[in-house]
């Protein structure tokens, strides 16, 4: 008796789901936007974690942080003239190039599942364009160098001593760090380390191993 009752319920449920299945069949599909919605993009930007300060980047370079991937979005000529150690060059003009599968070519050179990508240009503007594009393509962990190379030269290469009257201990610490960083990068730019930098740049210009981009695994 109990068994028969259960069987009736199961038959009823099957019927209900078959009706649902048929409704599903005729339900129109909505196009899924593969790119990030403008709303989410603005939210990401406004959260204030879109930028890496020059101090933070300087420290990461000095620490030889393996996760850091600097991307120079200026022209090739500018890149050849000066670049930050370990940076690769993807000129902004080339950023819209696509391969035969309709994927952005430059996406292959970056591995955001493993790296922190920091875009930089002379100011903020070009880097911001690259950041916007990368973020819309759902690349994870992409940032911009705050103030660009101009800010880099202001703060790191020509550090200004804090005013003795108003300065806080933090400002002094920052100043000390910048002086140290200046020595580090000054040497890197002039001395024997320059060859290493140049070599790195030559190697890491977009001939990096072809690997596709993924976001860091969610779910499990």
């Amino acid at each position: 008796m109990e068994h028969k009752k259960q069987l009736r319920i199961y038959l009823l449920l099957t019927a209900v789901f078959m009706v649902l299945a048929i409704i599903m069949f005729f339900l129109p599909d909505k196009r899924v936007d593969k790119e990030l919605s403008p709303r989410t993009l603005i939210k990401l930007y406004n959260h204030g974690n879109a930028y890496y300060s020059v101090d933070k980047v300087a420290k990461m370079i000095i620490d030889e942080n393996p996760a850091l991937q600097l991307v120079d979005v200026r022209s090739e000529a500018e890149f050849a003239e000066f670049s930050l150690p370990g940076a690769i060059n993807i000129p902004l003009e080339k950023i819209l190039e696509k391969d035969e599968h309709n994927n952005y070519v430059w996406k292959e050179y970056l591995r955001p599942e493993k790296k922190i990508t920091v875009f930089y240009s002379n100011g903020d503007l070009k880097a911001a364009q690259a950041w916007t594009l990368a973020t819309r393509l759902r690349m994870d962990k992409v940032f911009m160098l705050e103030g660009g190379l101009n800010n880099w030269f202001d703060k790191i290469m020509t550090p200004e001593a804090p005013k003795a009257t108003t300065a806080t201990p933090e400002e002094y610490a920052a100043y000390e760090f910048r002086k140290m960083a200046k020595t580090f990068f000054g040497r890197a730019n002039a001395g024997q380390a320059a060859s290493i930098t140049a070599e790195e740049n030559a190697n890491s210009a977009p001939v990096v191993k072809k690997k596709k981009v993924v976001s860091e695994g969610g779910g499990c």
């Binding site: 099957t14 789901f17 078959m18 649902l20 299945a21 048929i22 409704i23 599903m24 069949f25 005729f26 339900l27 129109p28 599909d29």
Partner: peptide
């Protein structure tokens, strides 16, 4: 469409 796949999957499941 997602609906058609759901339809197919419901049939498979049942």
């Amino acid at each position: 469409s997602k609906g058609v796949w759901t339809f197919i999957f419901i049939l498979i499941a049942f």
